[in-house]
Simulated scan of single mutants.
Amino acid sequence: MRIKAVVFDIGQTLVHYPIPLNWSALYRPAFEHIEQKLGLSLSEEAYEHIGKTLAKYNARINPREKEVSSDLIFSEILEGTTIPETLKETVKKEFYDYFRCKAHVYPEAEETLAELAGQGIVTATLSDVAYGMDNQYALDDIRPLLKYIQYPYTSNDTGWRKPCGKALEILAEKTGVPVRETAFVGDEIKDVMCAKGAGVVSVLINRTGEAKDYGQDYEIKDLREVIRLIN
């Protein structure tokens, strides 16, 4: 059986983010940056409220299956501060940019996607966004790759977060490629669980070489190995 579609996670799969997976320790530095950048004055009570609200929507602490919008999260954040609602979009941008500023696409990502496209393989992404991050930010990190990706999806588009397999099922309907002929490449256990839940071929990318037995169908060290797998 030939693989006809390959879906990629974004963070630590296509793009390297040199920050912890759990952003808890960076809530205050991020909002101190926002405070300084926008000329705001936030009280300790405001910082406490901000931290509690972000922790509530931190999927690493409180996993959830259904996605939540950034508007809901940041409206709730602003309600406990003196920041006017009119600055919500600006605050969102500064918050997300704080965590994205040093992100970079892995060197082999573009050539891999170009090769897949050249072979007629359908390509897509499926990534959980952090704190409802809008696609304009989440997908901007893969801008050099978008010309090769036919279905650039995140949890905003499907409404579901991994490890729930429903998101991949929705994506399979969009691509028109059966799940059994689709592979999902990701770096975490939730990526493998999502693939298995949807009946998709699971490919774990493990760049560190440490033992990771998540029940994956295949394991690779480099995105270029995807080409070998599908052929």
Rank of each mutant, 00 (worst) to 15 (best):
T112W: 06
Y153D: 02
E44T: 11
S127N: 11
A211K: 15
P18T: 13
A117S: 14
L171E: 02
P107C: 11
L229G: 01
I34C: 05
L116V: 10
K92D: 07
I73H: 00
D9M: 08
D217I: 02
P178W: 11
V192T: 07
N22T: 09
D217V: 01
T175I: 11
T175C: 11
A198T: 05
I3E: 04
E45V: 15
E115S: 13
P163V: 11
Y47S: 07
C194R: 01
V179I: 11
L72V: 14
G215Y: 08
G80S: 07
H16N: 10
K212Q: 13
R100Q: 15
I34D: 06
Y106D: 03
L171A: 03
Y137A: 01
I19S: 04
E45K: 15
D128G: 08
I61H: 08
F95Y: 14
S75H: 05
E67D: 11
I3T: 14
T154D: 02
A5R: 07
I73Q: 09
A195W: 05
T81Y: 12
T123W: 07
I34W: 04
P20F: 01
V177T: 02
A55P: 00
T53K: 10
I121N: 03
K66A: 14
L204T: 03
Y106Q: 02
V7W: 01
K92A: 01
S127K: 01
A167W: 09
T208A: 13
I170E: 05
T13F: 06
V6M: 10
N156D: 03
P20N: 03
M193N: 05
I142Y: 08
M193R: 11
G132I: 12
A138L: 11
R2D: 12
E48M: 10
D97N: 15
K147E: 09
A198N: 00
G120D: 10
G80Q: 13
L126M: 15
E32N: 08
K147C: 08
E181T: 00
T86E: 15
D217P: 01
K221E: 07
E108F: 09
E110A: 12
G176W: 05
I230Q: 05
K190L: 11
L204H: 05
